[in-house]
Simulated scan of single mutants.
Amino acid sequence: MLSRRLFVKSTALLGCSAAAHPLFSNMAFADAPGDNRLVVIILRGAMDGLDVFQPYGDNNLRKLRQKLSLGPDQGALDLDGYFALHPDLGGLMPLWRAGELAFAPAVSTPYRDKRSHFDGQDMLEAGTGTDLDLIQQRDGWLNRLLQNMPGVRSETAYSVGLEDMKILDGPAPAKSWAPQTRFNLSAQGQRLLEHVWHEDPLFRSAGQQAIDIVESGIGTVTKEDGKEKGGPTRDVRALARFSADRLNGATRIATFSISGWDSHANQARVIGRALNRLSDAILTLRDGLGQNWQRTTVLAMTEFGRTVRENGSGGTDHGTGGAMLMAGGAIRGARVYGKWPGISEQDLYSDRDLMPTQDIRAYAAWALRDLFDMPRDVLERSVFPHLDMGENPGFLA
């Protein structure tokens, strides 16, 4: 039985932050004009871009890392003679060969030096340029996009998961749903519940949203025989499958998160599990979208990178410059975008981190500009305050 106290408590939990916790995922959706589709995947926990896209052609890599990121001779998959793909993303190699996978190394938000997951994720999802902006700007860049996009139906935006996504916070309305929640109610029971909550505005609104979302058909990933699929990537495949279903309809923008990237120790094991989830999410999107995959851009973004040097626990600590993954039939793939700064001692940021050479917000902004014809001044002033988009990197086909 769903009690009022439990329901309100569960709704309140959507506002809690889980930072790098591996069990939490969430999702948001919005309708928009046109046929182009955008999926933003937030990688919570600070993905080590140097391990995912390994610059094995830089001779300094083996000096700084004895166990991690050692290139094709250690099982990684060569991309271009300089960078190699982590073997746990091997399932994405067909996308690379088809020109549907690319990446940008040495990217970051303007967040510097404090290296807090919570603050870094807030700045990534808020899309702000300074700590002061983050304090003053309480909404997320996706919500500001909805407010500035003509023809968008923001009442159809969703936040799905066990925590709130700041990227969707703001005046544009959104609905919330927690995965694996069961809300079975007969028609008579629904009428009774509506009568009970009628005089309670808070519960009436939350309860009606629950009914609306359940009636919209959110479900789990299942086998053909009707049994739920198991395995560690089941939940992320469920999120990706539902995303594809929405994107095949009126939805044009979707965002969800994949956690579990905080690899202070035993990084090979930790990042391997996270990469399996990311690979399955992207491949599930591709399979579920069908022909619409050709009009889809996927951006996978993390709050910051990790230290260039591995630590004594077989892991890496919080850093600065990271990497961004792009996928989809709408991108110009099989390419490395941006400028590689190198990892020699004199090239490092604060003598420990990969030096950022590009603001990660610029890639998101150019995606919005090219996919949805958003004016540059709106993107630089309102959606991403104080951003200089620079030249178009041209990663969209």
Rank of each mutant, 00 (worst) to 15 (best):
G34I: 01
L43H: 04
G305S: 01
Y363E: 10
D113H: 13
V39P: 01
T320I: 01
I282M: 00
D169P: 02
N148V: 05
M355P: 12
I253M: 06
P94F: 10
F7I: 12
E224V: 10
E303S: 01
G140L: 01
E163M: 03
S10W: 07
D51Q: 15
L146T: 09
T302C: 13
A238D: 14
D131S: 08
D139W: 09
T222L: 12
L278A: 06
V196L: 14
A19C: 09
P201W: 07
G272A: 09
L6C: 14
K175P: 05
L387M: 06
D317S: 07
L95M: 13
A126G: 14
L2F: 13
H86D: 15
S69R: 15
A323S: 12
A206N: 11
A250W: 09
R241S: 08
R277P: 02
A46C: 06
Y158T: 11
D88Q: 07
L193E: 13
F242H: 05
E303V: 05
D119P: 14
G329D: 13
D388A: 12
K227I: 00
D373N: 09
T297C: 13
L68I: 10
L124T: 01
A174N: 12
L371S: 07
P171K: 01
G75S: 02
P341R: 06
T296D: 10
A102S: 15
V336W: 05
M374W: 01
L348T: 10
Q358D: 13
I343Q: 09
K114N: 06
D139C: 06
L239N: 02
W96F: 09
F304P: 08
D280P: 03
F304G: 08
A76W: 03
A362F: 06
W177V: 04
L77Y: 06
R153I: 11
A300L: 06
R115F: 04
G321T: 07
S350P: 00
A323C: 02
R295V: 00
L13T: 14
L396I: 15
Y158V: 12
F29P: 00
A84V: 00
S313M: 13
L134P: 00
R309F: 12
T156Q: 14
E224W: 06
I360D: 09
A397N: 13
S243D: 11
N36C: 12
S382I: 07
K166I: 00
L275Q: 11
D113R: 03
I213H: 05
V160M: 04
L348R: 00
K223M: 11
T128R: 01
K9S: 15
D377Y: 04
R37G: 07
P87Q: 14
A187S: 11
V308D: 03
T233R: 09
Y82S: 07
G312Y: 02
T302M: 05
P171V: 05
A104N: 07
I343S: 10
T109P: 08
N36K: 08
M47R: 00
S279C: 02
Y111D: 06
D122Y: 02
R376Y: 05
L6K: 15
S344I: 06
Q147S: 15
R112T: 11
R277C: 10
G312K: 08
Q121H: 12
N148H: 14
D78F: 03
L92P: 07
N311G: 12
P105T: 01
H386A: 15
N59T: 11
L2V: 15
G217I: 08
R332V: 04
